[in-house]
Amino acid sequence: MTSNTDDVLSRRKFLIASSAVGVAGLAGCTENNSGGSEGGDSGGSEGGDSDSSGDGSEELSGAIDIAGSSTVFPLATAMAERFQKENSGVNINIQSTGSGGGFANYFCPGDTDFNNASRPIKGEEEDQCANNDITPVELKVATDALTVIVNNDNDFIGEGLTVEQLQTIFSAEEAPTTWSDVNSEWPDEEIEIFGPTDASGTYDYFIEAIIGEEGPGHRQDYSATEQDRTIVQGVEGSEYAIGYLGFAYYSENTDSVQAVPVENDEGNYVEPSLDTALSGEYNPLSRPLFTYPAQESLAEEHVATFARYWMENSTSKEIVADEVGYVPLGDDEQQEMLDKLNAAIEEAN
C-alpha cells in the first residue's frame, strides 16, 4: 500500500517538475551563459595599499594551494585575504604544515603551488622537487626578529646581553641556575626561563643563531609553551625571568616586558625594532621568512598574479608589520624579489 502511494507521489512530482520547466519558459527567463555565474558575495573594506597590475582587466579564476611554515602562515593569509577581495574568482587554500613537512609532503610532490618556509630550502628538498620536475623560486617575504625579553624591573643586565651570555644561559652544557653563574656581578637569584616548545620554528632558529647546531643543544629545564602569550606573562610575573619569542608578540606587549639589546657582529648592543631589523643592524637574531612558488605553477596567470601581488605588498607596513607583526622588506629587496619573480614567470611561459 505504501509503495503504491509512493509511486503515485513520485510520478506526480515528476509531472510537476517537468511542467514547471515549461511554465518557467513563460515566466522570468534569462539568457543562459552556461554555468550560472553569480557575482561574488564579497564586499566590505578595501584591501591594502595595492596597485596590483592584474586586477580589473580580466576576471581571474582558479585555485591556489599554499602549504608550509606556520610562522609565515598568518602573513600568507593576510595577503590572500586582500587578494581574494579583489579577485573573488580565485580560490586560495592555505594550510599550516611546517616548512619541512610542506616541502616533503605537499610542494615537491606537486600538490601545492606555494610553500612557505621560515628557513631556506635544503639541498635534499631541492633534489626531491627536481625529481618531480618542480622548480622552487625563492622569494623573501619578510624578516622576523627574535626578541629576548626580561622583566621590567630587571636593571642589572645593563647595556644588554652578548651572544656568548645568551649561549651560556640557554645551552644544555652549562645550564646555570642563578644569574650570578652567568656573570658574578649579577644577583644570586634563580633564573626562570621561558621559551617556545621544540616543535616551533622560533626554537629552531634560536638554536641555529645562538646555541649552534653542533653544540650541546638547548637546555630542557625551561618552561616551554606553545603560546607566546604565556611567555610574556611568565616574564612579566617574575623579576628574574628571561625568555624569547617572535617580535610580533613583543611589539604588542612593549609595556609589559622589556626587550634585551643583543650585541651584534659589530659589537654594538642593538634593541630589536622594525628599523634595526630592516637595516640589518639587529643581528644575529633576525631571520628571513620565505615563500617558494613553483615555477611551473607560475605559468598560470592567477598564480603569477597572486605572487606579484604578494611581492608588491611586501613593503606594506600596514599588512606586514601592523597586522602580522613581521618586518616588511625594504624597497631594494622588494625590487630584487620582483625581478626574480618576473624572470621566473617569463621562463615559465
Binding site: S70, S96, G98, S99, G100, A104, G201, D204
Partner: peptide, 25 residues
C-alpha cells in the same frame, strides 16, 4: 604540567613548524 600525548604528537607532526621532513613524518 603540560605534556604531549601520542595523538597530539601526531597532529603536531603534521601541523607544527618542525624542520626536517622524512624521518619525523
Amino acid at each position: 604540567e603540560g605534556a604531549l600525548p601520542m595523538t597530539a604528537a601526531m597532529v603536531q607532526l603534521l601541523t607544527g613548524d618542525i624542520t626536517g621532513g622524512g624521518l619525523a613524518y
